[in-house]
Design a protein around this nucleic acid. Structure first.
Lengths: 198, 198
DNA sequence: GTCTATAAATGGATAGAC
DNA sequence: GTCTATCCATTTATAGAC
């Protein structure tokens, strides 16, 4: 699940959590090794004992965060396609965003601009989308086989649902249009329902 | 259109363009006054003659960028609702993204994390969404009045279309899933078509 | 309005003791 | 594995000449 054999040691885990806090509290531009060390309550040089450089740390931190994000969605996969889709959507777009989820999603938004030109980051954001579409597509496909959904293109439908979820998550975090999230969700649910067999 | 009476002088405009280049070339974390001054080919202190601080400059730069972004979409508003929606979508999600548009969209992605906790930024991103939904909603409403679209909820449909566009724009810039953009667009077009009167 | 020079702080990163 | 101390580059911002 975690891509390779990087089971984190206790201190490494603490550094990751300290980085998370520093990033949430101060943003990407302000993020410094000193700031992380403050959150960690250890000396700066300790961090360099575990990571070659700030860049190295950040790449590993994205890995850490992506894994945590993916862990929040791996729960699904039942055999009621309609309910399964609803479950995926409400997991990513809950009515009340817990502080924990808000922070996790915020960190991804904060790191995402790095994916614009750094392939190491880009790959990990690509991975998230691949996993999410795979789950959605499988669910749709299962629904079609079970004669619950009409015979639509599962890939197109999955991309449609994912794009809407991402667009809504993003807007929710970066704008003041609270009502928009509700409207988008309602429309997404009715989109899914309209593909159910009458 | 530009919110208030801030007609930019020649040098201010040059500073904005230099900031754009510096941001595109080096990203938000690396962005410094020195870097902007290099792109500008003037001394650092010249920038402080026009802007109180780096923060001040960045807020004004977002204003500058949002205005440019909004200028790319204000062209629309015909009286063929279906074609108008297609036009909006292909403007924001062209098959071939020109380098100019890619940079403009990238700058918005780069600045968006600032909207997570800074209200000054958040307001401007909110404004973009309000403008876009207004245009889409008006088009849908016109289509319903002209008996081209079924009697759907224009607000919900507008939020749906906007969320998909944003999600797709975002993914396109931050992942390597080229095919996904095409699939999402195709699905969005067929979503619109399905709301046309048979 | 643009420049040079500089202040004061902080950045990433390393050396070496313990 | 963690610390203190330190190097050097770079940062934001200002002062003052032209």
């Amino acid at each position: 699940m975690t891509t390779d054999g990087d089971a984190l040691g206790a201190t490494e885990k603490e550094i990751m959590h300290a980085t998370h806090r520093a990033l949430v509290n101060s943003g990407y531009a302000e993020l410094s090794i000193s700031l992380i060390a403050d959150e960690l309550d250890k000396a700066k040089s300790t961090i360099y004992h575990y990571y070659d450089s700030k860049d190295d740390l950040l790449i590993r931190f994205l890995r850490f965060t992506v894994d945590r994000f993916e862990a929040t969605i791996n729960t699904t996969i039942g055999d009621h396609p309609k309910e399964d889709l609803h479950h995926i959507i409400t997991t990513l777009l809950p009515c009340q965003l817990t502080e924990e989820k808000r922070q996790l999603h915020s960190v991804l938004v904060t790191l995402s601009p790095q994916a614009l030109d750094q392939e190491v980051f880009r790959e990990q954001f690509t991975e998230i989308d691949i996993r999410l579409t795979a789950i959605i597509e499988k669910t749709v496909r299962r629904g079609i086989e079970a004669d619950v959904f009409r015979d639509v293109d599962p890939t197109h439908m999955a991309e449609h649902i994912l794009a809407m979820i991402k667009g809504t998550m993003y807007s929710r975090l970066t704008t003041n249009r609270e009502a928009a999230t509700g409207a988008a969700k309602a429309s997404l649910f009715s989109y899914i329902d309209s593909h159910l067999i009458s």
